[in-house]
């Protein structure tokens, strides 16, 4: 038996809108496999997104979904989780949505350590709106708004998440499809705010401006830059130049927000749940 992805897809929703070779579809498949591995119940799982190509993902998934305002997935998802702490809450979105307009929501969700999983598809660009640079566009790479190269240094999303207080941080790539579901499974199982960054490709607005001749070249780049954390331990700083670590980068046990909030309710004389 082949894996039945369509059991988690809303009837009639395929083919999806993403461009040929866009990695968002690979990430969505990884997320579906993770949901299946964990046996997540559709009625007890919420998928929440902001706006962008990546943020279109919840529209395809047959469970409780919220497609909200640009950058605001974390705010809406926090509301869902606070009202229904028993639900599994998964946030999805792009680098622009999560680290530009939504950067503030992102860092505070990390700081609170609320038990949700955030899958961030980092294709280094605002795909949906035609390729404006984002906070992750690499230095001197081109976007529609930086035709001569982007003078800004870029965010390292994983470091940002760790610095802000997320208690599980992992990174994968769209090329390493096999690993995506495993990282998401671990992230969901972790009690606290989990961030899974997937390095992704946008051939349409990023690739063609940055000398990638094809989707295959973009995939090959992801293949070449990724180094598993274990392998990196045996490599010299020179060997690691230009590489990106993949796998589980950080994990820590810390008080979780819904549990802490419950304590406040009880102190204030409210009932236990």
């Amino acid at each position: 038996m082949a894996f039945d992805y369509e059991k988690y897809i809303r009837p009639g929703k395929l083919p999806h809108i993403w461009c040929p070779g866009c990695g968002h579809g690979i990430v969505m498949k990884g997320m579906i496999r993770a949901m299946d591995t964990l046996g997540l119940e559709k009625n007890n799982t919420a998928i929440v997104s902001g706006i962008g190509c990546a943020s279109r993902l919840p529209g395809y998934i047959d469970c409780c979904t919220l497609h909200t305002a640009h950058g605001r997935a974390a705010a809406f998802a926090t509301g869902v989780k606070m009202a229904k702490p028993e639900m599994t809450v998964i946030l999805v979105g792009g680098d622009g949505d999560g680290t530009a307009i939504g950067g503030n929501h992102f860092i505070h969700a990390c700081r609170r350590n609320i038990d949700m999983t955030y899958i961030i598809m980092n294709n280094y660009i605002y795909g949906m709106t035609g390729g404006q640079f984002s906070p992750t566009t690499p230095h001197m790479h081109k976007a529609s708004t930086t035709p001569y190269g982007n003078p800004d240094p870029s965010f390292d999303i994983a470091k940002l998440a760790i610095g802000a207080g997320a208690t599980f941080v992992a990174r994968g790539t769209a090329f390493h499809a096999n690993q995506i579901d495993k990282l998401i499974v671990e992230a969901i199982q972790h009690k606290g705010f989990s961030v899974v960054e997937i390095l992704d490709d946008c051939p349409t607005t990023y690739g063609r401006r940055n000398k990638f001749k094809s989707v295959i070249e973009m995939m090959n780049r992801l293949k070449e830059v990724a180094v598993p954390v274990k392998a990196a331990e045996k490599m010299s700083p020179e060997q690691l130049q230009g590489k990106v670590l993949t796998g589980v980068l950080y994990k820590e046990d810390k008080p979780e927000y819904c549990s802490e909030y419950q304590k406040v309710i009880e102190r204030a004389g409210g009932g236990a749940r």
Binding site: A2, L14, P15, P20, G21, K29, A177, M219
Partner: peptide, 10 residues
């Protein structure tokens, strides 16, 4: 690998 990497469920 082909099935895992196909972005389009095809």
């Amino acid at each position: 690998q082909c099935e895992l990497r196909c972005p389009d469920f095809a």
